[in-house]
């Protein structure tokens, strides 16, 4: 498996497409966080700097969007570009037969490719966070505390898991479809659906199950919102956005919409105004993280199952 992983890593880091994608993402991320940093510096000028101001670099929108929103939207592209041709490229170049006729287990092929993809994604995201942190140190002039560093590490891990989901999905499509274009298109279609249309689909599902006939009736509205929120959790984009915004914002103490906050939760929020410690923030988003990890594992397990049962011919 390590031999295949090593070769895949060399392929990723030596490919022009990886270089272009990396440059694009670094460029947009730097511009976004520079705008956020400038915005922050101007806003905070002459004021006492609030605690955990460093994290605002990642969450405050510059002109268009924040870095967290940017990764939530463009992160899948990294996963898709890394994995959409993982298996069908080998099949089309007739190297898959060569691989599986060597004395290795067939799963070593898929494990090696997935591992190489995850390492590539991790290096890419780590570079991005370090670059932005470094730039933040210069522009905002605040050294992050350990709590903030811890939050950034957790954010990084969640981002790796999120992009790995898209990697797993694109590997699955590369097993299912022989054509490179089809597997890329299928992954992109799902990405667009999860990014833009999942909200509409969740609302439609909620309306189908519990329509709000009387908007003045709070019970109907709450029931509708509950279903809509639950349905939208099927989208990894929603799971990621919710998780990271809670991790990077210690003042956020609930996963629920303000409409859906329970009475005891509301009481707690009113009485305790201090920021949550990191472990409590992790507890708040725990279910989302579990769901995200579950989705990634389901994707990988499906790829594994289908690949192990496929017949591989050279022609």
């Amino acid at each position: 498996m390590l031999t295949i992983c090593r070769k895949e890593l060399a392929d990723h880091f030596g490919s022009i497409r990886f270089l272009i994608l990396f440059c694009l993402i670094v460029m947009v991320a730097l511009v976004t966080s520079y705008m956020a940093a400038t915005n922050l510096r101007e806003t905070l000028e002459g004021m006492a700097k609030p605690s955990q101001v460093f994290l605002l670099l990642f969450t405050v929108p510059g002109k268009f969007f924040s870095l967290v929103q940017f990764i939530a939207f463009f992160g899948p592209l990294i996963g898709i570009v890394t994995g959409f041709d993982a298996i069908n490229r080998e099949r089309n170049h007739r190297t898959l037969t060569k691989l599986v006729s060597q004395p290795i287990f067939r799963d070593a092929v898929i494990n090696g490719k997935f591992l190489a993809g995850v390492i590539t994604i991790s290096i890419m995201l780590l570079c991005l966070v370090l670059l932005i942190s470094g730039m933040g140190l210069f522009t905002v002039g605040v050294v992050p505390g350990w709590e903030e560093v811890g939050r950034l590490v957790v954010y990084l891990l969640i981002s790796i898991a999120y992009v790995s989901f898209w990697l797993g999905l694109s590997i699955l499509f590369s097993i299912l479809f022989r054509s490179l274009a089809t597997s890329a298109l299928a992954a992109i279609a799902l990405w667009i659906f999860c990014s833009f249309f999942m909200g509409f689909a969740a609302d439609l599902a909620a309306d189908a199950v519990a329509r709000v006939n009387d908007p003045a009736d709070p019970e109907q509205v709450v029931a509708n919102r509950r279903i809509s929120d639950a349905a939208s959790l099927a989208s990894p984009v929603v799971l990621y956005s919710q998780s990271t915004s809670s991790i990077l914002d210690p003042y956020r103490r609930t996963r629920s919409n303000m409409v859906l906050v329970e009475p005891m939760e509301r009481l707690s929020m009113e009485r305790f105004q201090n920021p949550l410690p990191l472990d409590q923030s992790i507890l708040v988003v725990g279910p989302y993280l579990a769901l995200l990890a579950g989705l990634t594992l389901v994707c990988f397990a499906l790829s594994y199952f289908i690949f192990l049962r496929q017949e591989i011919r050279s022609v």
Binding site: E90, H93, R94, T95, L96, T97, K98, S101, S314, V315
Partner: peptide, 8 residues
């Protein structure tokens, strides 16, 4: 195999 594949 027939038409053996290599990494070009």
């Amino acid at each position: 195999p027939e038409n053996v594949g290599f990494y070009d």
